[in-house]
Every structure is written in structure tokens, then in C-alpha cells.
Design a binder for these strands. Sequence first.
DNA 1: ATGAAAGCGCTAACAC
DNA 2: GTGTTAGCGCTTTCAT
Lengths: 373, 373
Amino acid sequence: MPPAQRHHPTLADVAQRAGVSASTVSRTMRGLTTVSPDVRARVEQAARELHFVVSRQASSLVTGRTGVVAVLAPTLNSWFIGSALSSLGPVLRAAGLDLLVYVVPDLAERTDFFDRLPARRNADALLVFSFDLSEEESARLDDLQMPVVYISQHAKGRPSVYVDDVAGARAGTRHLLGLGHRRIAFVQTTGASGFTFSSHERLLGYRQALIEAGVAPDDDLVVATPPGDKRRTAEAVGTLLSLREPPTAIFAEQDEVAVSLVWTLRKAHVDVPARMSVLGFDDHQMAEWSDLTTIAQSPADIGRAAGELALDLLNDPEADRARHLVLPTRLIPRATTAPPRPVAQDRPAEAAEPADPALDAPARGRAGVDTYE
Amino acid sequence: MPPAQRHHPTLADVAQRAGVSASTVSRTMRGLTTVSPDVRARVEQAARELHFVVSRQASSLVTGRTGVVAVLAPTLNSWFIGSALSSLGPVLRAAGLDLLVYVVPDLAERTDFFDRLPARRNADALLVFSFDLSEEESARLDDLQMPVVYISQHAKGRPSVYVDDVAGARAGTRHLLGLGHRRIAFVQTTGASGFTFSSHERLLGYRQALIEAGVAPDDDLVVATPPGDKRRTAEAVGTLLSLREPPTAIFAEQDEVAVSLVWTLRKAHVDVPARMSVLGFDDHQMAEWSDLTTIAQSPADIGRAAGELALDLLNDPEADRARHLVLPTRLIPRATTAPPRPVAQDRPAEAAEPADPALDAPARGRAGVDTYE
DNA sequence: ATGAAAGCGCTAACAC
DNA sequence: GTGTTAGCGCTTTCAT
């Protein structure tokens, strides 16, 4: 009675069936050219018949390469990361590499990760997503003995892929300036761990564009709110609307907040865009649904680029170990930005709470009609 | 001159440093109790000093276990999958397992995956997300020699984790019935590959609840639209509104569509919920933002449950190989459902296009005022 | 172009 | 409790 055949077939099994040595099977499986055509055919057939798959573990052991690219991410429940990984996957697969994910949602797991560096022997490269790493943590990753690519952060001296946030924010602000706005607010996003780089840069771009246009940046016009917090968002809107000189346009650092702003404004019967323009950043899926004008970035492109950069680093020892890939953004004009209505600039503004009786009607017919107050 | 120390430290290195044998180090690293406390301490210190990490490849080779759980998913850019994986990750980590992701976005990759079954020797278990597998594909996975857990699909005879869609849809429909609605439409989602199971089940629950309540299901009230397609959604709304007896409530199979419906209706100046109640399913992030009444499911719970089920299957050979974990849903009443206005049932309804001059004002003050037509 | 042999880093069986 | 020994399945010299 033959032993229960519960294990996978091995090189030796294929070799025996094809009447060759294990070495030859190995060479065949790796596509080396030093195998005669007829032998190759025999081996391939035998392998197919046995459903033979090379064991990564065994070959890793000798080659030192794991065939795995690891990703470090704070969550997978994110539009940005989800899109980027979805396009990264196929890039890696095409190169015969598998995608391993370390989800590190909280501080405890983070500390543990950097303590133990579980990726150390279990991946050929690491992609770090949207973390604000301390210099100490980056240094820790440096002695990981593998290429580490940073995504959405400017890791000086280390390979990075990110979008040109400054230019994007500048372009967005210029769009609003071009429409005639002069009082342009900027809403920062707080508490979204891991995106402080973008946050800084976008604010910077906003300021640059204002200065270029000869508009003095006003810190009263810069407020912050956490994403998804209606109350805080409403507060921020209230603060802006109750300024002596309220803005006529709001540039939100993130689409999620921008959409929330639109809701809040419309609920308070402040028409968008007739009374207030709103501009987002990201081109999040919901931006399209909400007809939000926004500065688009493509996380899919970022994921792809990061994957290709990692492959370069992996395959070419001469590759530039500090290359920064900076991807462009582009303005997508939609329905939430428009020229400001001519309004008496020095009249006191209403607060957010009192419901304005103005209709939430399309802007066209009403723009220019000064029914303010 | 010492050789360039470019390789990772091995068991032997630690053993030498701690003055013990490799076996002892191995036992220590695996937490076996047969190591005396002082030796254990010495070994652990040596390991720490050398930044030693056990090579998965090498240990896999002998144990036959890879320490990896693989996930098969059509995309990662999905609220459901993202949330589920984000909670699955930590569950696996706690068990010392890594998470490997196969993103299989299109038919070509899918065919290739089932052809080659790359997971075969590279994972201990496989979680299959939201795919509508053919019986042939499932059969292929069966001879994978590892536990395969199906998520969001009812794989008969195989371990599965999903939400009770029938009960959820029934509860939702009852909620609307309880508010007094009798003409309740159901909007199906088409083209969202991988969720046809839920789709069927939700429609079923809707029908059941109607029948239970003595309301005859009317096929005219069941329409379909792809998610994120504004035009088609508007068409669906138009179809429903132009029925001789239009609905007073719409139950959408997915929140994304429900939110889109609310937008479309409000744009057409059909007040929600005063003139039309809208109910969603999922409790997608945007449901809260949109104040959408919905049937909540928790993808995070599903991910966790699936992970734990996989661990059971992995660790307990006696475990039930066909266990189905069915998770509950719950109604979250928010602002898009309300009692129907008393309305002359047999009057002809307006079409979707003509802008109704009715204000998009809060329902309270206006409900009950019959300004219809 | 092919085969034989050595060994990658670890665990498991067996001694002691 | 701890050390010794023999592989796990593959790749890689080195022969031929």
C-alpha cells in the first residue's frame, strides 16, 4: 500500500517522472536556456501532470530572495491606500512577487513592528504607506537590508513616491483667485494620522499662490477640523462665516472635508457655489458624486510607480537609492466653484446657525442678485 | 579582516553567543517550556543583541507551515473589503501569521490564479472575498490542501462567513411598513461583481416582508442601477416616479446607491423624507455623513470572524469544515425615512424631470400639508 | 547539456 | 533540560 500522498510533489518527483535529474528540472522551471528543447518538453509535461509548483520556501532558503514585497500601512480602510494597493498588486504579480501586508493600526502594534521588524527576513522590499515616521523609525528601517520605498512622504535620502502637493494647492488656489475670489479660506484636516506631510505642503502651496497674487495670507482664514466630525466641521464653518470679512471660497485640504463643508453650508442655506465656492483635494470617489471641484491625484498611479520603483531597486543594484518620484495633480472643475457674487465687503456677516431663508437653487439665476443679509 | 557581514544572523550565531546549542535556541524562540529560565534569558538576550529573526522560509521547509494566510480579493479599493482586512490583519498577527493578498481585478488574472493556484505552497489558509465562484473554481480550491474560508458568499459544504442579508432586508422593509408605507420600491445594484449573493438575498428579504404584511410584491417597483452612475440612477428614479402608483419609499440594496438616490431626488425637488423615504443597506461611511437610515452590517466583524474561523480550522483538525458563520444586521434609523404623507393614491404622479418648486426644507414643518401636484 | 554533491537555516527525533 | 543528527526542497558549484 503506497503511503498517503498528502504532500506536494517535489523536484525529485518530477525528475523521476521525466527521467532526468533534479538539477535539470530546476533549470527548466527557472527558464534557463541551458536545457535542450526535448528535455524541456518532457520536464514541463511531467510537471504539469503532477501539478508541480516550486516551493518558495525551499528556493528562498538558497537564493536568499523571498519573492515577497511587504507593505506597511496604518489601515486598509482608506480610499487612498486601497486604490494604491489595488494597482500595486498586479505590478508585483507580473514580476512574480507576492504582496504581504502589515496592518499597523495603533501605537502598540507600531512599536512592536519597529521592535521586531518582522519583515526582516520575510520580504525582499518594503513599501511604507503614509506614515509619519520618526527619524529613529526610518533609521530602523534602514538596517533592514532591503529596499524601502516611502509613499506619500518626503523621506530625504531615501526612495519616495508622492504627489506634488505644493503645486496642486497652488493650482487650486489660483483657480479660485482666477474666478475673482480674494477672501479664500483654507480648511486643514487634523487627526488624520499619517498625512501631515501633505497637510503642510498643501497649506504652503495655498499661501504661495496668495502671495504671488498679491493677496496677504490671513491666519483667520485658516481653520482645522477632523474628517467625518460634523459638529467640528459646522463649528469651523461658523467661525469662518462670522468673521468680519468672511471668505467667499473655501479650499479644503481633503475631499472628505470639502464634501462635508458643502453639506454643512447647504444645510445652513448658504448656497454653493453662488454664495460660497468650495474646492477639494484628492478626487476622492465621493468628489465625483458630489460634483465637487477638486485637485485630483491618482493613488493608482502612485501605487504603480512605487511598485516599479521597488522592482528597479530590487533588480538593479546600481539604481539610485534616493530617487524621489513626484507625481502631478490636476484641477477638475466641477460644480462647487464659481465667481464670487459682488457683495458689500464691509457688512457684518451672518453666523452659521440662523437658517438663511435663501433657496438652495442653482446658482446661475441668482448670482449677482445682492440679497445678502 | 572579517568577512562582510551582509547576511542575517542565524540560529547558530545566537547559539554560539549564548553558549548553547542551536536546538535550544530554536526551542526558546518557539516558546517551548522545556527550557530552563536562565538559559532562556541568556538566549533571548543574545537574540536581541543580534537582532535575530527566525527565517520563515527555513522553518516552513521543515514544519510544512508557511505562517501565512492568503486573501483573494477582486480589489482593495472597497469599503467592505478594506474594513474587513483592516480588522483581519491584527487577528492574524496576534496568532503570528502574516497576511498575503492576491488582488485579482480582472478575468485574465482570475483565470491565471485558478490555473496556477499560486497560494498552493505559499499559505496555510485562504480567505476568498466576495467572489462569485463557479462550482468549478470552488472545486479547484478544494484540492488546495488548506482551509479555504468564503466571505460574503454561501458556499455550501464549505466554511463561510456572511451577514444575514435576508433578515436585514426583511427588517428594513418592516421598518418602512411600520412607518405606514405600502408602495415600497427596491433598487437593485447591477454590475458590482462579486456581490450577487447579497443582492439576491436582500431582494428576497424585501419580498418576504411585504408578503408577511399582506402587501403584494409589485415587480414594477423593483428597478436596477449600477453604483456611481448618475444618469442611470436618475433614470431609475424617473421610472419609479412616473408609475401610475409611485412608491412612497425606496429601499436601496446598497448605501452608495441610496445616497445617490437621495441626491437625485432632492435635485428634482422631491423632498426626502417628506415626500419619499429612502433606506439603505450596509452602513457605509457615507451613510452617516448623509444621515441615511440604513441596515448596518459590520465588515470589521466579518473580517475578524473570518480570521478566527480560519485559525480554528488551522489549529483544530476536528473543527467543523463546513461551518457557516452568519452575522446579524441592525437598523440604524436616521433622517431619510419618515411616515408617508397622506396622499391621494390614484392621482397621476409627476415625472422626475420637471423641477418641482417645492422647497428642499426640513420635513417637520411641511409633512402632512398636501401640496402634491 | 546534464548529473552529483554540498548546503541554505531551521525543526524533530532521538539520545543523554 | 539540552545536545546530536538527519533531513525539509531547492539551487549551485563542479564535474563530465
